[in-house]
């Protein structure tokens, strides 16, 4: 490209404005969270100790580990972290098991019906997430639709405890995040050359062998992208466990929110956030890598 001052200025502006915006409203906020996580709570405005104290005119760094040591000594936090990871992992697996055959079926249907099917997958995503989770309350409650049907059919004699269970949380997460699993899988499966399966069959592979040997390995990037897109936000999920989940075992997102809003303990809330991020940094980097590769391959 010919180098010109006005052009260079223009480019700097185009890239610079969004960069600046994200620096101020995305990166700096994280630095603040990081910094507050090393403070102690106090009754003041703001409700935490400053990081740098001025003693006789000289700056004095004050680092408190109390928020973190608190997290590791109180079993509530440790169990919440582990529980969140378990819920996210199980839900991701369920999403994959349900979503893969669906994506496969869509990729194999004719050109005429495929847009309709894709629209049906995406449509719930455009309606309110909150209201879709809410809909499950009506289905799962003790006097909800499912229990009423089962009772009237005589399958059960007492209403099943469906809501406020792990099962309800799995249902809620799978239900809400299923499109995020199906779409990247579909995008991957749709690109597969049908001649590869024909070649496998021609070489004597039975359909199942051809699937395991040809289709599955090729769809690994789609599986990775879909699974990460479900797993990462599921770990920090707040609405679904609050509306559908247990009251005796909280997920970590809820713990963070409660620390902040109920206990007004900003340093502990910040430390919880930092530790969630530590758990997620590897999956997030992995996802960015998968997506960058796909974008490059697409070009």
């Amino acid at each position: 490209m010919a180098v010109r001052l006005s052009q260079v200025m223009g480019r700097r502006l185009i890239a610079g404005i969004p960069t600046l915006w994200l620096l101020v409203l995305f990166l700096i906020p994280f630095i603040i969270v990081f910094r507050i996580s090393f403070s102690e709570v106090r009754l003041a405005i703001p409700p935490y100790t400053p990081l740098i104290n001025w003693h006789h005119g000289a700056p004095h760094l004050e680092v408190h580990w109390s928020a973190y040591s608190f997290l590791f000594t109180d079993p509530l936090y440790v169990s919440s972290y582990l529980y969140s990871l378990k819920v996210a992992a199980v839900s991701t697996l369920c999403c994959l098991l349900i979503g893969y055959p669906m994506a496969y079926a869509i990729a194999r249907t004719g050109d005429a019906t495929r847009p309709l099917l894709l629209m049906l997958i995406v449509l719930p995503f455009w309606t309110s997430f909150l209201l879709r989770v809410y809909a499950w309350i009506g289905l799962l409650k003790n006097n909800g639709v499912i229990n009423n049907v089962l009772l009237s059919l005589g399958v059960v004699h007492h209403p099943l405890a469906l809501i406020q269970t792990d099962f309800a949380v799995y249902i809620g997460i799978v239900y809400s995040y299923l499109p995020f699993m199906i779409l990247p899988l579909y995008a991957n499966l749709e690109k597969h050359d049908p001649a590869l399966l024909e070649a496998a069959a021609d070489l004597g592979a039975r359909p199942w062998r051809a699937f395991v040997g040809v289709t599955l390995p090729q769809s690994l990037p789609g599986i990775a992208a879909g699974s990460l897109l479900v797993f990462i936000p599921a770990v920090g999920e707040y609405v679904i466990p609050t509306l559908l989940g247990r009251t005796d075992q909280l997920m970590i997102g809820r713990v963070l929110s409660d620390e902040f809003f109920e206990n007004r303990d900003w340093p502990v809330a910040s430390a919880v956030a930092i530790l969630i991020l530590l758990f997620l940094i590897v999956p997030i980097l992995l996802l960015q890598r998968v997506e960058r590769r796909q974008m490059e391959a697409g070009q």
Partner: peptide
């Protein structure tokens, strides 16, 4: 991909 609770907390802070 960021969990919303973290984004929310950091923005408020």
């Amino acid at each position: 991909v960021m969990p919303e609770v973290i984004t929310g907390l950091s923005l408020l802070l």
